[in-house]
Amino acid sequence: MSQSTLDYESTVNTEQQSLGKRLFSANTLWTGLVLLVLYAVFSIMRPDAFLTLFTFQTLLIEAAVLLVLTVGMTFVIITSGIDLSVGSVLVFAGVVGAQVMEGMSPGGDATGAGAGVIAVGLLATVAAGAAWGLLNGLLIAKAKIPPLIVTLGSFGAALGAAQLLTGGSDVRTVPAQLRDWLGFGQTAGVPHMVILAAVVALHGAWLLRTTRFGRNNYAIGSNAEAARRVGINVTGHLVATYAYVGALAGLAGFMSLAYFGTTTISGHSTDNLNAIAAVVIGGTSLFGGVGTVLGSVIGVFIPAVLTKGFVVIGVQPYWQPIAVSIVLVAAVWLDQVRRRARNSR
């Protein structure tokens, strides 16, 4: 700043709003309350079944993979982009990682593989995901193809590539040590899958909330032209963001390998929609510029609690998608109302 020529007579209130006041005004508080109310309702209806450590643990562990995808999706949607390819990139990266581990093991059977092989597998999985994300990013930011189209293409192509690599069937030998340690291991009652997902979420929240990368992410989503005019490297940022999402999809693929012990090629076809739904329920705007990782975390657990609760209290399974959809539409509607209220000024 060119401060030398100016003198200050400070009258603007520099006191920051209290934490409570900020929280109260935030969407996150309300979605968080919805989650707590849902949890309380199911707990009251079936305290013996729902309000147990086991239910809580399985809720967390079953959401871990989706949560990692959702953290990345939050970044992309805040840039007013979208990534439909995450589920397929997850499968592709998982296949690459599993095949690398098999390739390093005698006889192509990775079941007995040790820590070294697993570490290389992790790197390969994350790198494969990041590479696919990088490709998405280049096509979107450099070639200026709309993200919807690019990632729709990747959605099909990454799955096709995974099937090509495996001849179409799942890679079946996953190191037992990996399954024992990451898939089912726990420390002090906290499953390692959950710890890993929490670390990813915390890192994502830190990156988005406190760093220049995060600030640029909001700025680009809010007004890309304004960002460009103040000298932000919009193209580079978008490429990096999609690569980040890809890398997280790769990590999620590794977690899925550890948990299911197979590459689950025929699964994950709706991961993209689940992640988008979670992000949107969590208060991130599809128009970009607004959103938090914490909100997305809550957004992952609202459908998870709903579906688990419905099974536990014995509601007909057909109601589950209906309830989740209602929550989703309500979340988008609230975002619209909020925007309209703001823009009418």
């Binding site: 909001y218 809010s222 032209e225 705007s285």
Partner: peptide, 8 residues
């Protein structure tokens, strides 16, 4: 045209 980021 306002070159600001409205969400910030």
């Amino acid at each position: 045209d306002l070159a600001v980021a409205p969400d910030l």
